[in-house]
Design a protein around this nucleic acid. Structure first.
Length: 282
DNA sequence: GGGCCCGCAGGG
DNA sequence: CCCTGCGGGCCC
């Protein structure tokens, strides 16, 4: 008999705002089981809850948006980063939540040993960067589900489009042009996906638009991709080397005469989105 | 199923 | 500030 998967989402009798005295109480209520770790969950099932206790200087918390730093690689005595953070344990769990579009319970330490359950958040971005220490750290953007919903129902919102997954994808003004240059052929795998209404392709930003990445909406920052390659590219399973050969699979980036791809954006994707780590089910 | 390793505690 | 801690995921 396998242990029951930890419950995801809202817990009955525990609405946002519920207070807990100490980690023990949090644990016994099932809101956040571990007594010390900040991330709860499994490598396959994803993260189910996180605790923000202000331990990371780099974390930013603006209420509905939280920039969360992954775990590991720190000296337990000094807290200094002394090794790369790996996509394992809690970091992998959060990356799985991103992939699965699975909500994460967020708990904040509000004073002393008092913790407050603050509702469900989605992992809307997942990337890595090299910090001042010279070591790689993983970062996760958590956004309040409630805030995302009200954003979606606000008629005034412009370009952002959220699909079934939590990947934030925005429409490009130059998408049609880039697709035309490539005749709707995927630049990664060469597929030209046919439908009765015509060939289908997607315009994929190399360096994602908007925070935290801040990529430009220009043709030089776009690729013409099939839906499968688009997903894998956005989630870091495939990258493009400086010589335009592919990373993570055989092949090379297909080019069109009129379409200049900015090497700097490909470099950004390599150093922040693409990851060589094979993942739990490779 | 058992040990091992780990962490945004908590108190002294 | 330092050290003991405890449950849980995960690998053997």
């Amino acid at each position: 008999m396998k242990a029951a998967a930890p419950p995801v989402g809202e817990l009955p009798g525990c609405p946002p705002g519920t207070l807990f005295e100490g980690r023990r109480a949090l644990s016994e209520a099932g809101v956040h089981r571990p007594l010390q770790a900040g991330i709860a969950g499994t490598a396959l099932g994803g993260a189910v809850s996180v605790v923000l206790s202000g331990g990371y200087e780099d974390d930013q918390d603006s209420g509905h948006q939280i920039l969360y730093t992954g775990e590991g690689g720190r000296d337990p005595r000094t807290g200094a980063q002394t090794a790369h953070q790996l996509l394992t344990r809690g970091n992998l769990a959060l990356a799985r939540s991103h992939l699965l579009g699975q909500p994460v319970r967020v708990v904040r330490r509000v004073a002393g040993a008092t913790y407050r359950y603050d509702g469900l958040f989605l992992v809307t971005a997942c990337w890595h960067e090299v910090g001042r220490s010279g070591y790689r750290i993983w970062r996760f953007l958590l956004e309040s589900e409630a805030a995302l919903e009200s954003e979606g129902t606000t008629a005034a919102t412009a370009a952002p489009e959220r699909h079934a997954t939590t990947r934030l994808r925005r429409l490009s003004r130059h998408g049609a042009q880039v697709k035309a240059w490539h005749d709707h052929t995927c630049q990664l795998c060469g597929l030209r996906l046919l439908t009765p209404a015509g060939p289908y392709a997607e315009a994929a930003h190399i360096r994602p638009l908007g925070q935290p990445h801040g990529g430009p909406d220009t043709p030089e920052n776009l690729l013409c991709l099939c839906p499968n390659c688009h997903v894998q590219f956005d989630l870091g399973g495939v990258g493009v080397a400086p010589d335009l050969t592919l990373l993570g699979r055989p092949g090379a980036l297909r080019q069109a005469r009129a379409h200049h791809v900015d090497p700097a954006q490909l470099a950004y994707h390599r150093t922040h989105i693409y990851s060589e780590e094979p993942g739990p089910m490779a």
